[in-house]
Computed example of a mutant assay.
Amino acid sequence: MDNNIIKNVRETVPLVHNITNYVTVNDVANILLACGGSPIMADDVGEVVEITSICGGLNINIGTLNARTIESMILAGKRANELGHITVLDPVGAGASKLRTETALCLLEEIHFSVIRGNVSELKALFGGEGKTKGVDADIADGVTEENLDDMVQFAKQLSKKTGAVIAMTGAIDIVAEGNRAYAIRNGNPLMSKITGTGCMLSGVVTAYCVANPDHLLDAASAAVAVMGLCGEIAYERLMNTKLGGTSSYRTYIIDAMSLINDNTLEGGIKIEAR
């Protein structure tokens, strides 16, 4: 893995256009700033093409999907493709409703994505499996475990070949795959699942990392996933040491950790295995 991925982000300050979840839009903006990027949030059909044109990356998140923004997502995605920009899809809750699933499938038909980031349930729902979404979260039955890790790695590789995208499958064990290459990542803390938006924030970070490292998308996406997990670990240690606060403080500590992390910290804390 390239040892300068975070350095490249902080030096280039990638501008990322986010058509994202209203619930987590502020957290996505703050985590992008913390990681070294620069966020723009714009979802009106009258400006998305123009905004996408001045950005290096586009992050599409269907977490609070509505009919008004579907056209905006398609127009922005097509413009990003025309310009050769990084595009990331976060199919939040795919499988939970017909609208979410059909919209995500439509986006995949209309737009070529550089990276698709989702949990196992969402990815199964999109690609012919039986994903068991529980609201916008993965069902426990769809978790990645040591016992099914090999099968899940093969599933991620198959999706990558089918879509031409890097697949970032996140859960208790994260898998990031591109073609026949994949990484299993074991960074993170269970408390992260108790905060709304860690997945949405990660998709923003993935976009920034890939914009800053366009020739190494697998490494960039893997680093982003590992960094987010490592920030969760650092934040949890801080939470336990202070013996004050709860999940709201934990979210702030994650953003704090992201603002301070560098390539040396990542190298010392990453838990990654080539598969």
Score class of each variant (00 low, 15 high):
107 L>E: 07
120 V>I: 05
175 I>D: 05
196 T>R: 06
146 E>I: 05
270 I>F: 06
127 F>T: 02
82 E>G: 12
249 S>F: 00
123 L>R: 07
66 N>G: 12
204 G>F: 02
220 A>W: 01
88 V>D: 15
140 I>Q: 11
275 R>P: 01
234 I>Q: 01
161 K>E: 14
216 H>C: 13
64 T>S: 14
138 A>F: 13
66 N>T: 12
165 A>C: 11
144 V>S: 05
82 E>W: 02
121 S>Q: 08
212 A>D: 04
246 G>R: 15
13 V>R: 13
73 M>E: 09
30 N>H: 12
115 V>C: 15
257 A>G: 03
228 M>W: 06
215 D>P: 04
77 G>T: 03
49 V>N: 07
108 L>S: 04
13 V>P: 01
234 I>P: 00
236 Y>S: 09
97 S>A: 13
155 F>H: 04
68 R>L: 08
239 L>C: 00
171 G>M: 00
238 R>E: 14
43 D>C: 04
250 Y>F: 15
179 G>F: 07
159 L>W: 07
274 A>M: 06
199 G>N: 05
76 A>K: 00
264 N>E: 15
60 I>M: 07
234 I>A: 08
37 G>S: 11
137 D>I: 11
101 T>P: 06
45 V>Q: 09
83 L>M: 11
58 L>T: 13
213 N>R: 08
5 I>W: 02
128 G>D: 12
49 V>T: 12
36 G>C: 09
61 N>H: 10
249 S>L: 03
138 A>H: 08
171 G>E: 00
275 R>T: 05
17 H>K: 10
12 T>H: 04
150 D>I: 08
141 A>Y: 15
31 I>Q: 15
187 N>M: 07
172 A>V: 08
128 G>K: 11
20 T>R: 06
209 Y>S: 10
112 H>C: 09
1 M>W: 08
180 N>Y: 09
15 L>D: 03
177 A>L: 14
250 Y>P: 00
